[in-house]
Design a protein around this nucleic acid. Structure first.
Length: 377
RNA sequence: GGAGGGGUUCCCGAGUGGCCAAAGGGAGCAGACUGUAAAUCUGCCGGCUCAGCCUACGGAGGUUCGAACCCUCCCCCCUCCA
């Protein structure tokens, strides 16, 4: 299911292809997030045109609404949302983390109260897998506990142990139906725990491996250290997925450290909130300096937004709270991410990944990436 | 002509003797956002030589230790009746 095509000589960067039931994915790849069966603001055709090869869906959210059985009856998630490319579904493990106040973790699984209506539900490794099978995703994620940060060693160790037991149960529950199943590495920020996590997951055996429990509030340097140390420990012939990351700078840093797949809400959420990524750094489109700026967002971008609209118009739409602002901004940010990934893949193929990374950093450093530079006050 | 209501900081709008540079919205300015409870959230928002001072609650005057708040006159708006 994964074919490693090339390894960079100067870094851990890799070029590969993942085969799924709904097509191939060239890696390194960034997967736009479509939590509720839609990449917010975009039609599937647009998502595809922007260069996305695979998108995310979410077990917890689709289970609660509209319900996985309903989606199954209507032909599965692909048909339901009119996206015929690959879909990866997250298991609900992240909601164990993000909906902290509304859930209780037990050996059996996680008892949730719906954030929508307060109703009570139990999500287990078995039910999470069953839901993902009903949705019909191409890549199914094991149900895990996304360990929070900070977490002390004892908590991280117990959490990891639980996630490993759940991984075994997820594997056991998974039907042999062509859907891929990925294991998730946990262990907090503790190297020995993460190493153990990897060893145990590999023993169980998965189609791919994800680094989880990162980008949950730990310092970026910490995350990079962990990725640098642990991504190379994952099986070379399996895809490596860093969950929930990140900024363009994070993507470059983590490809360099051996990661093949990413997903993150940053490009879509930030687009809706008016933060746009360009080849000259980030732009906060609501800022007054763009009031009469007739230039495109990014002259080096080929997206629909940059080909047709000025910063002044985009600022106007945003300030006026027009729906089109979110659409155009999302188109741009996703295209920026996709273009970056395309350039990364080409650069690895042509043995110039390091040069590309350096070049991108130089172009954008003038006003930094999100959360990258020193925090002011 | 008669009866009543009202003029507050960029706008709307609370306040009705000291705790008021004055609630709350809006606008404006800036920041955040990392497996989406996010079209969300946060901060600033009269000026200055900034633990204080100055300028401000339609205008002018007055009462008071003290007034956006009480009194007098004036100006302007709105509603109803004729």
């Amino acid at each position: 299911m994964f074919k490693l095509i090339k390894k960079d000589l100067q870094s851990q960067a890799r070029l590969g292809v993942i085969s799924t039931l709904h097509g191939e994915i060239c890696t390194p790849a960034f997967m736009p997030v479509g939590t509720q069966g839609t990449v917010k603001g975009l039609m599937p055709e647009t998502v595809r045109e922007l260069g996305a090869q695979i998108i995310l869906g979410n077990t917890y959210h689709l289970y609660l609404r509209p319900g996985h059985e309903l989606i199954r009856r209507l032909g599965g998630l692909h048909r339901f949302m009119n996206w015929d490319g690959p879909i990866l579904t997250d298991s609900g493990g992240f909601q164990v983390f993000s909906l902290g106040a509304l859930r209780k973790i037990t050996e059996e699984g996680v008892a949730f109260q719906s954030h929508i209506d307060g109703s009570r539900h139990l999500l287990t490794p078995e039910s999470s897998i069953a839901i993902q099978e009903a949705l019909g995703s191409d890549i199914v994620m094991c149900f895990d506990e996304c360990t929070p940060f900070p977490a002390d060693y004892d908590y991280a160790e117990q959490s990891l142990a639980l996630t490993l037991r759940w991984a075994e149960r997820s594997k056991a529950a998974k039907k042999d139906n062509g859907q891929a199943l990925f294991g998730i590495v946990q262990g907090g920020v503790y190297p020995d725990l993460r190493k153990r996590s990897i060893e145990e997951l590999v023993k169980i055996g998965f189609d791919g491996y994800a680094l989880g429990g990162l980008s949950v509030g730990e310092p970026i340097e910490k995350m990079l250290d962990i990725v640098a140390e642990h991504a190379p420990l994952l099986p070379e012939q399996s895809p490596r997925y860093l969950m929930g990351v990140g900024t363009p700078q994070d993507l470059l840093n983590c490809v360099e450290r051996g990661v093949d797949m990413f997903d993150c809400v940053i490009p879509t959420r930030c687009a809706r909130n008016g933060l746009l990524f360009t080849n000259a750094g980030k732009i906060v489109i609501k800022n007054a300096i763009y009031r009469e700026d007739d230039r495109p967002l990014d002259p080096d971008c080929d997206c629909y937004t940059c080909r047709h609209y000025s910063r002044a118009y985009l600022r106007h739409l945003y300030v006026a709270k027009e729906i089109l602002a979110m659409v155009l901004n999302t188109i741009h940010n996703i295209r920026h991410y996709m273009m970056l990934m395309e350039r990364i893949r080409t650069a690895i193929r042509e043995d110039r990944f390091s040069a590309l990374k350096r070049d991108y950093e130089e172009r954008t450093c003038q006003n930094g990436g999100t959360r990258s530079q020193e925090e002011g006050d």
